[in-house]
Amino acid sequence: MNAALALGDDALVLSHRLGEWAGHAPVLEEEVALANIALDLLGQARVLLSLAGDEDELAYLREERAFRNLQLVEQPNGDFAHTIVRQLYFSVYQHLLYERLAAGDGAFAPLAAKAVKEVAYHRDHAEQWVLRLGDGTEESHRRTQAGLDALWRFTGEMFQPVEGLDGPDSGVDREELRTTWLTAVTETVERATLNLPTGPQSGGWAAGAGRQGLHTEPFGRMIAEMQHLHRSHPGASW
């Protein structure tokens, strides 16, 4: 239950953030690309939340402290580089995680096997853009480096064990995941002529915080917007 919420909330919240790009993307081709990724994630979220209960009750009626997503995915979009870095950090992690879950015998293996194909594409999209932005113009390089730096401290949380997910059958070893993630992200970032930050991957008290229901301030406003209509009509069907 906790694991389904953790994975489901990651997908739900990131999908919501990507949905905020609609009508604002830097070029029409990216309107379509970002929406595709958001739709994939929303589809994953619906399956995962349904494992834990009623998808709409969970999405619309939980308080902020009951959400189990990573703080990384709730971070506001910022500029396109910021969004792409968030995509890189998360999609590489999600891809590696789902590959491992798919290969394991855990409860999430079938779901992960389907989602891993979608996530591979999200990862590719992020990597392609990091290369172009990092090795593009001076401005795009600067913005992308700023994104890497700003979001770095939210990456440590991805490697905290999740209750109900990291069992012996799950195929997930968080230390191995961290090493593999770091190698993959470093390779992309260096090819893009950028530098991966070297500071701590999480703030002092924040390690694993999102998974415990401790979120950052922008998240409250995000779910206020997401939930207001649903909550304004208690019991209504849509």
Binding site: E29, V32, A33, N36, H125, Q128, R132
Partner: peptide, 20 residues
Amino acid sequence: SLHAPDAEMALRNARDLYTR
């Protein structure tokens, strides 16, 4: 047809636009 900065992105944009 579509616009893309290079061949790799053109393929991806084509996938997103014409095979969704």
